[in-house]
């Protein structure tokens, strides 16, 4: 499985089915804590259907949990993910903890 890291880092639509709509819902839900995401949700439902849109929102929501939990407990970057860190251009040892 390959991920387009440019899409992850720079927010360009990934080369996936409904990539632009997935990106828009993910960004809106993660960065806009107060406003409505109605437009982004509606576009995702139109692109993927209601079941897949609901599923995508669930993934987005659970990583809000995972991120806060892992950062909150001071979990180090797992050894298995160090090659990915290198691909993303950072050294896990340099992260202030």
């Amino acid at each position: 499985m390959a991920l387009d890291l440019n899409s992850v880092e720079f927010g360009t639509p990934p080369p996936l089915p409904a990539g632009a709509e997935l990106l828009a819902v993910t960004d809106a839900l993660t960065t806009n804590h107060r406003g409505s995401i109605e437009a982004e949700r509606r576009a995702l439902v139109e692109a993927l259907g209601p079941s897949a849109a609901e599923r995508a929102i669930g993934v987005c929501a659970t990583f809000q949990m995972m991120n806060r939990a892992l950062d909150g407990v001071g979990a180090p970057v797992a050894a298995s993910l160090r090659p990915l860190a290198a691909d993303l251009g950072f050294d896990p040892n340099s992260i202030p903890r």
């Binding site: 927010g11 997935l22 993910t26 987005c60 990583f63 995972m66 991120n67 892992l70």
Partner: peptide
């Protein structure tokens, strides 16, 4: 799975979670 992992990776990037 790529759609799922893209969402996970993008959320984590925006939250600056590097785990």
């Amino acid at each position: 799975r790529p759609q799922i992992e893209f969402i996970a990776a993008r959320v984590s990037f925006l939250n600056e979670c590097f785990y």
